[in-house]
C-alpha cells in the first residue's frame, strides 16, 4: 500500500514538471537556424524532395550508420541470447493446430504485395514520406505473416545473414566512395543529382536507402525468426 502511494506521489511530481513544461511552451513562429538551413539547402544541394530523408541519409548519415549498427547489435544479441536456450535440448516438435485456410490463402495473396510495397517505400524514400527503416519494417511484417502461417517451417538464417552483410558492406562502401568522388563520407553527390522530384534523382540517396531497407528488413526478420523459434520448447 505504501509502495503504491510512493509511486503515485512520484508520478504526481513528474506530472507537475510536465505541466510546467507545457504551460510555458511557446511554439516557434519561424524555423530555427538549423531547420532553415535544411529547408533552403536540401533541394539545391542534394536534390532530395523529402527533407527528413536528406537529413537522415546525407546530412546526418553517420548517425544513421551508427543506428543501423545498433540495430545489428540488437539482432545479434537476440540471436545469441535465444540460441543458447534452444541448443540445450533437442527441439521437441509440438503438434500445432493447422493455420487455417484463411491465413494460408491470405498469406499467399498478400505476401508478394507486402514485399512489393516495402520495396516501393524504401526506393521512394527521397520523394515520399517513407524510407529504408519504414520499408524494412514492412518487409519484416511480410516475414511475420509467413511465420504465422507456417510456424514450424525453418527459415534459412544464412540467407538473412548474407542479405544483411552485403547491404551493410554496400552502405559503408558507398560512404567511402563519397570520400573519393565527392565532398566527404556518405556524400550523395557521387551520382548526378538528376531532375528534382523523379525516382532517379538525389544522387546516391535512393541507393543508400535501398541498402538500409534491405539491412533493416533482414535484421527485423532475424529477430522475428529467432523469437519464433524459441517456441518449440
Amino acid at each position: 500500500m505504501i509502495k503504491r502511494f510512493a509511486v503515485i506521489l512520484l508520478l504526481l511530481g513528474i506530472g507537475a514538471i510536465f505541466t510546467g513544461l507545457m504551460v510555458n511552451y511557446v511554439p516557434d513562429k519561424a524555423l530555427n537556424v538549423t531547420a532553415r538551413y535544411y529547408a533552403e539547402q536540401t533541394a539545391p544541394d542534394l536534390g532530395a524532395a523529402n527533407i527528413v530523408t536528406a537529413i537522415i541519409v546525407t546530412y546526418r548519415g553517420l548517425d544513421t550508420l551508427g543506428e543501423v549498427t545498433v540495430l545489428f547489435l540488437t539482432a545479434a544479441i537476440v540471436g545469441l541470447v535465444l540460441a543458447r536456450g534452444s541448443s540445450d535440448e533437442a527441439p521437441a516438435r509440438r503438434d500445432l493446430p493447422p493455420p487455417g485456410e484463411l491465413l494460408l490463402t491470405g498469406t499467399r495473396l498478400l505476401l508478394p504485395l507486402i514485399l512489393l510495397f516495402g520495396a516501393y517505400v524504401f526506393t521512394h524514400g527521397h520523394l515520399t514520406p517513407g524510407g529504408g527503416f519504414q520499408g524494412g519494417a514492412i518487409i519484416a511484417s511480410g516475414m511475420l505473416l509467413m511465420l504465422l502461417s507456417h510456424p514450424l517451417r525453418r527459415f534459412g538464417h544464412r540467407l538473412i545473414a548474407i542479405v544483411e552483410s552485403i547491404a551493410g558492406l554496400a552502405f559503408v562502401g558507398i560512404g567511402v566512395l563519397g570520400i573519393a568522388l565527392a565532398g566527404g563520407f556518405l556524400d550523395n553527390r557521387i551520382l548526378p543529382l538528376g531532375t528534382f522530384g523523379e525516382l532517379f534523382s538525389a544522387g546516391a540517396i535512393p541507393i543508400i536507402y535501398t541498402f538500409v531497407g534491405l539491412k533493416v528488413g533482414a535484421e527485423f526478420s532475424s529477430m522475428l525468426v529467432n523469437l519464433s523459434e524459441t517456441e518449440d520448447l
Partner: peptide, 25 residues
C-alpha cells in the same frame, strides 16, 4: 521543423531494438 522528425525516426527504430532485447532477456 524537419529535425525532430528525423530524430524520432531514429528513436522509433532504437525503441524497437530495446523492446526486442527486453523480450529476449
Amino acid at each position: 521543423d524537419p529535425v525532430p522528425q528525423a530524430l524520432v525516426l531514429t528513436a522509433i527504430v532504437i525503441g524497437v531494438g530495446v523492446t526486442a532485447l527486453m523480450l529476449a532477456y
